[in-house]
Design a binder for these strands. Structure first.
Lengths: 353, 353
DNA sequence: GGACCGATTGGAAACGCTTGCACATTCGAT
DNA sequence: ATCGAATGTGCAAGCGTTTCCAATCGGTCC
């Protein structure tokens, strides 16, 4: 394996000059640079990563921490992050930060001591102590989908977007609207679910519409759990809503499948709207608010890398709010005439299942 | 930041002993080990990653290369890999190896020179030269979902599994069976698609069933593309099959949606079977062959780590074939009586759309 | 009782880069 | 011409571990 000294010898310069020529730090004459580049190529020289990191204190490596990998939002954000990092010449070290598992280990061992130059935390639920540890480590950190206390985060305005989604249903004439969303986990702050539910609630209140307890549904962010929950609610002719606003497209698709399995047609018998921009939603005709997850990942990388340069740019803790794009498809429509019951459902007879 | 010397001073031993105590290499007296452990904890000491890697030549870091991140199979395998690596105390460096983009860079820069101790390649399509580069690098490598020439791979037997899927349909009485699968890309070997298509073809031949050209469909491994292709074929009453065998569950779901959008019922008018074990398939009632993708990732890690120890275990290039589990659900059934036309369709009138 | 052996320990030499510093050279502006 | 600044280069001192080697110490084996 050729080392930097071999390159230096072949190029007829010192190792220091090779280092400068290859890294771009410090000034090197054009001719020297050329000779170095050629020698490096000829020898098949590649910098030793650990040696470089040890000497310089920089690792060109960014840690990415996320609680799930295989769910749509996370894998899509990750794809954006990976692409942007590769382009910038950075490595990506992945930490799957699951509930209760290896939390401590990741937070201490892995995130310390020059393993990474910075950190991207995707929709992480941390308790106060953990956030403290993170900030104490001094690692430049950017959040995605947060917000995390005191850490600049790339995200959408969950409340506003949810309100927009709910208002869309209200605008179509729906009055019996249910929300399927996530839960705030004990101890950990998870403002995404909270924000989306708040958006729903505020829209309903602003329109003076009732929110039956049964309409505010807590579910996992999975198609299957949303399916189960939706099916159960839809099977009840008294409480059955005419529309669902779901906190994610995966949930929304579950709701659509539940409707279909009960013989209900979308959007005739039931309107469904989600948040995400999941590719499969296109086929199902799912109306949604596209939150451009991939772009969130890309932005997070740029934001973080901006802090790492010699002249740290925008270090402020200000969040960056990305717009969501409304995609009107065919899963939402005005409720059928006979469905529009304004008052909280009493014994009103619903049209058969 | 405390260094190893600080720990040594506090514990009253030399730096060498601290290193031995913490790493477990070399012998250390119980009392010394205790003092070191305590001192390290008290000081909040964590090894410097690059320094350790430089001095030892080992990085405790595994590279994972995959062409996609957000597709079900890849993200699920990745989740398995991540979990197993974390448990073993290894880092995971992620390389998104896209078609034509950064191939060279990843293969030279990233994979060389002590960045990683080993490599896991997930369903990679490499040309011969690239495989050569990979092997020349001397990096211990394990494939997942391959096979890759000369590299031990964890996978299912694509041909056998596909044959089993097709035979299931044949056993139900279907004779008009179409396959939606992937393509072998130009120049790159991609045996997965090939194997699955071959399994389909061989099953059909063994049963003396015809394969219309229109029935052997090439599609992206996405729900949306499979949807489009299936819809197009199903819309043709002459060539319409009574069953689909799809190379992935995502494709199979696309086919199911296409059927539904054309007013066909599954399984009454159309049977669909896939390969994967995608969670959402459960809700849709998709019959499939579960290839335990997560487990493939876990196995790959164990296999690779086994090679890295002081006494490298099973270094042989033998592939490891995992079994697939048949999940019979409700998307497959015998064809309707009036559908069973054995001969290649002539002008036989099909029952209306 | 003496040679030998394994366990334990410390000193010091790597590991392969980066970078502060000093020095030489070149260049443009007085 | 003269001087200061800017540019280009090499030397050598790290960066924070790991590990080879030698040394010490109890005990074991004949």
């Amino acid at each position: 394996m050729a080392g930097i000294k071999d390159v230096a010898r072949v190029a007829g310069v010192s190792a220091a000059t090779v280092s400068r020529a290859l890294s771009g730090n410090g000034s090197v004459s054009t001719s020297a640079r050329e000779r170095v580049t050629r020698a490096a190529r000829d020898l098949g020289f590649v910098l030793s990563y650990p040696a470089s990191a040890l000497a310089s204190g920089r690792s060109r490596n960014i840690g990415v921490v996320l609680p799930f990998i295989s769910r749509w939002y996370f894998s899509t954000v990750l794809e954006g992050i990976a692409s942007a990092l590769t382009e910038a010449g950075y490595d990506l070290t992945l930490y799957n930060f699951q509930k209760d598992k290896f939390r401590e280990k990741v937070l201490t061992d892995f995130l310390q001591r020059n393993r990474t130059d910075g950190l991207i935390a995707v929709a992480l639920q941390l308790d106060d102590q953990e956030i403290g540890q993170l900030r104490a480590s001094g690692l430049p950190t950017v959040g995605v989908g947060g917000p995390l206390q005191g850490i600049p985060t790339i995200r959408i305005d969950d409340r506003a977007v949810s309100r927009q989604a709910t208002d869309h249903l209200i605008g179509l004439g729906h009055t019996r609207i249910s929300h399927i969303g996530g839960e705030n986990e004990e101890g950990h702050s998870f403002p995404i679910s909270l924000g989306r539910r708040a958006g729903y609630t505020s829209a309903m209140q602003a329109a003076s519409l009732p929110v039956l307890p049964a309409w505010s549904i807590i579910s996992d962010y999975t198609t299957s759990d949303a399916y189960r929950q939706a099916k159960q609610l839809l099977a009840d002719p008294v409480q059955r809503p005419t529309a669902f606003f779901c906190a994610s497209d995966e949930m929304a698709m579950g709701a659509m499948m539940a409707a279909r399995d009960l013989g209900l047609r979308v959007p005739d018998d039931l309107s469904v709207i989600g948040i995400d921009g999941h590719e499969t939603g296109d086929i199902l005709g799912l109306t949604t608010l596209d939150q451009s997850a991939r772009q969130q990942g890309v932005r997070a990388v740029h934001r973080l890398l901006g802090q790492l340069g010699p002249t740290p740019a925008d270090v402020g803790p200000a969040d960056e709010i990305l717009p969501a794009r409304f995609l009107l498809r065919t899963s939402t429509a005005a409720p059928r005439r006979d469905q529009t019951v304004t008052a909280p459902p009493s014994s009103t007879v619903q049209v058969g299942l």
